[in-house]
Simulated assay, not measured.
Amino acid sequence: MTIETTTGGVLVLILMMTVVTLATRFGGVFIMSFVRISPRIESFINTMASSVLIAIIVPMAFGGDAGAIAALSVTAITVLLLKKPLPAIAAGILAAAIVRYMF
């Protein structure tokens, strides 16, 4: 299978990705409408979100550049101090930008 890089080919790819994304999102909601949410299932759903985030962050912490490590460190420290995620994320982005600009 070849992928056309013309304007029409790119638009077809974007349309295909849109359809797949919508199908998975709506499909998940549709399937979960048949499941009774017990405390055990609710705990699984809450824990799953954290495990996905950790699966993304840990490889970056061990294999990332100085900017990634600075962003993770500053974000972790800021969220522990302020107990608010949005300022911590902003501080992490700023730290990564500064480190990458300087080095």
Rank of each mutant, 00 (worst) to 15 (best):
N46H: 11
A76S: 09
A90F: 12
S43R: 13
S50Q: 08
M17G: 02
T7P: 02
F44V: 09
G9M: 00
A23T: 03
L13Q: 12
I93S: 03
V99K: 04
V10A: 07
A68E: 14
T18P: 00
V29K: 15
G92T: 03
A68S: 03
P39T: 06
I54F: 10
K83A: 15
G67T: 11
L81K: 14
I57F: 01
P85H: 13
M48K: 04
T78V: 14
L82G: 00
T7F: 11
I93P: 04
M16W: 03
E4A: 06
A49N: 09
P59L: 00
I69K: 15
A97Q: 04
Y101Q: 15
I93L: 13
T47K: 05
V99Y: 05
G67L: 03
F30D: 01
A95P: 13
V12C: 01
L94F: 07
G8V: 12
L53P: 03
A95E: 07
I89M: 14
M102Q: 08
I54P: 01
T5P: 04
S33A: 11
I69S: 12
I57E: 02
L81H: 02
G63K: 10
L15D: 09
I3N: 12
G8S: 06
A66N: 00
S43C: 10
T7G: 08
T21Q: 09
A90T: 15
T75R: 01
V20S: 13
K83S: 12
S33H: 06
A76K: 00
K84T: 07
T47C: 12
A91F: 00
P39Q: 08
Y101T: 14
I54C: 15
A97E: 05
A88K: 12
T24E: 09
I89Y: 14
V20G: 00
M32A: 12
M48N: 03
A88D: 02
T24N: 05
I14E: 02
A90V: 14
A23M: 08
L22E: 09
V52L: 15
F44C: 09
P87W: 01
V35I: 15
A97G: 15
V29G: 03
I77R: 04
I31D: 02
K83R: 15
I37H: 15
I69C: 06
G63M: 02
I89Q: 07
F26Q: 11
M1R: 05
M17L: 13
A49H: 07
I54S: 01
I93M: 07
T18K: 04
G9P: 01
T21V: 03
F44K: 07
R100I: 11
I31H: 06
A88S: 09
G67M: 07
F30M: 10
G92D: 10
T24Y: 05
M17W: 08
I89T: 10
S73V: 14
T24V: 14
L81G: 05
I14D: 01
S43A: 15
I14W: 04
L22S: 00
K83Q: 15
R40M: 07
A23P: 04
P59K: 10
M102A: 12
T75F: 14
M17T: 10
R36Q: 09
I41D: 00
L11S: 10
M32W: 05
T47A: 13
I56N: 00
T2Q: 08
R25Q: 02
E4D: 12
A61H: 02
L80G: 13
